[in-house]
């Protein structure tokens, strides 16, 4: 799954560590999601959407 997490995080001047603490996951998880090696669970995706005040599909979208 493609995502805009790295861009959104950079826009808010958050480090991976800070974002991980807010969402309640490890820094490794944030890094793996940004590198598109791992797809987050629905609750994690919702937390990210709430934090960035966006809909889930504005952050994550399936590969074409």
């Amino acid at each position: 799954m493609k995502n805009r997490l790295k861009v959104l995080r950079a826009e808010r001047n958050l480090t991976q560590e800070e974002l991980a603490d807010i969402i309640g996951v490890s820094r490794q998880t944030i890094n793996a999601i940004e590198k598109e090696k791992f797809d987050p669970s629905l609750p994690t995706a919702f937390k990210m959407a709430k934090l960035f005040q966006l809909n889930i599909e504005e952050i994550f979208h399936p590969e074409d």
């Binding site: 309640g24 996951v25 490890s26 998880t29 793996a32 791992f38 669970s41 994690t44």
Partner: peptide, 9 residues
Amino acid sequence: NESDELEKK
């Protein structure tokens, strides 16, 4: 059980 989703995977 207390690990996050990637750690569990």
